[in-house]
Design a protein around this nucleic acid. Structure first.
Length: 254
DNA sequence: ATGTCACAGTCCCTGTGA
C-alpha cells in the first residue's frame, strides 16, 4: 500500500501535475493540502475517472484539504468540530484506517496572533490523536514545523522564526507522544529529507529546504512500513508546487 | 534585488499570504 502526503499549493493550478502523479505513481491513498478550491470546483468526477474516491473540505481561495483513495472514502469528518472556519483538517475511513489530511497554520511570526492559533491547532490535533488510541491511524500533512535542526538547511538563519521555535516543536512532539510515529525519521534517522523549498532564490537547486511535511502512523501500521521517501520529481519541471510529495509504502496486513 | 507563485479585486496591475 502506497500512501502519499502532498501540499499542492492550489489544485486548480496543479491539476495536470496531480493527474500525472496519480497515473504514473499509482498511489493507494493521497492526502492533499492547500487545494484552494471550494467543493463545487473540486474534481470529484475526474478523480473517479482515474480510479479514486475522494473527500474534500474546501474554503475558496485559501486552505482546503482532501483525501483521495482507491478504496472507498467513508465516514468523512471535516474540521475538529470546534467552529473553526478555516478548512485545515479532514479525516475519513479508508479500508481499516482512519486517515487524516492536515494543513497546520503557518504562524506568520512569533509575535503574530496566528502563531498562537498554530499552537492551539496543534494541541487540538494532539487531543484528536489521543482520543483515537487503539485505532489504525495514518496522518499526513503540511505541519509547518521542522521537527529538529536536521530538518532545516540553516538553523542559525531560522533562529527566531516560525517553523523551528521550541513551542511548536514541542507541540509536534506531543502529537507523536499521543501515539503516532514520524515515518520518514523512523526509517531514516540521520538523513536530510526536506519536503519544501521556497520558490525564491533557486532554493531547490541550492538545497535550501525544510522538512515540514509528515506522514505519521500508529505503531502497528508503522511496523508494516517498507519504504519512505521524498518524491523529488514532484518539485521539478513545469509549474511545480513548492512542496514535494512524501511517500510511504506499507506491506499489506494479512 | 525578498532571484516566486497563486489568488481576488482594485481586474492586465496590486496587495496579501505563503
Amino acid at each position: 500500500m502506497k500512501v502519499v502526503t502532498w501540499n499542492v499549493n492550489s489544485l486548480t493550478a496543479r491539476w495536470e501535475r496531480v493527474r500525472e502523479f496519480l497515473e504514473t505513481r499509482q498511489p493507494d491513498i493521497v492526502v492533499v493540502q492547500e487545494t484552494k478550491q471550494n467543493d463545487e470546483k473540486f474534481p470529484f468526477r475526474a478523480l473517479q475517472d482515474l480510479g479514486y474516491d475522494s473527500a474534500h473540505y474546501g474554503q475558496g481561495q485559501w486552505n482546503g484539504v482532501a483525501i483521495l483513495a482507491r478504496d472507498e472514502v467513508s465516514d468523512v469528518r471535516r474540521g475538529f468540530g470546534d467552529g473553526d472556519p478555516e478548512a485545515r483538517v479532514i479525516s475519513a475511513r479508508v479500508g481499516s484506517h482512519r486517515v487524516y489530511s492536515c494543513y497546520v497554520p503557518n504562524g506568520r511570526s512569533l509575535d503574530n496572533p496566528h502563531y498562537q492559533y498554530k499552537l492551539e491547532w496543534l494541541a487540538k490535533l494532539r487531543d484528536e490523536v489521543a482520543a483515537r488510541e487503539g485505532e489504525s491511524l495514518i496522518l499526513g500533512g503540511d505541519f509547518n514545523v521542522a521537527r529538529s535542526d536536521l530538518d532545516c538547511w540553516d538553523p542559525a538563519g531560522w533562529e527566531g522564526s516560525t517553523h523551528v521555535s521550541p513551542p511548536e516543536r514541542l507541540a509536534l512532539e506531543e502529537i507523536l507522544r499521543a501515539g503516532v510515529d514520524d515515518l520518514a525519521r523512523l526509517l531514516h534517522p540521520d538523513e536530510t529529507l526536506y519536503t519544501w523549498w521556497d520558490y525564491r532564490q533557486g532554493s531547490f537547486r541550492r538545497g535550501w529546504g525544510l522538512r515540514i511535511d509528515y506522514l505519521l502512523a500508529d505503531a502497528a501500521s508503522a511496523s508494516r512500513l517498507l519504504d519512505v521517501y521524498v518524491d523529488r520529481e514532484t518539485r521539478k519541471g513545469e509549474k511545480p508546487s513548492d512542496h514535494a510529495a512524501l511517500v510511504a509504502e506499507f506491506a499489506s496486513p494479512d
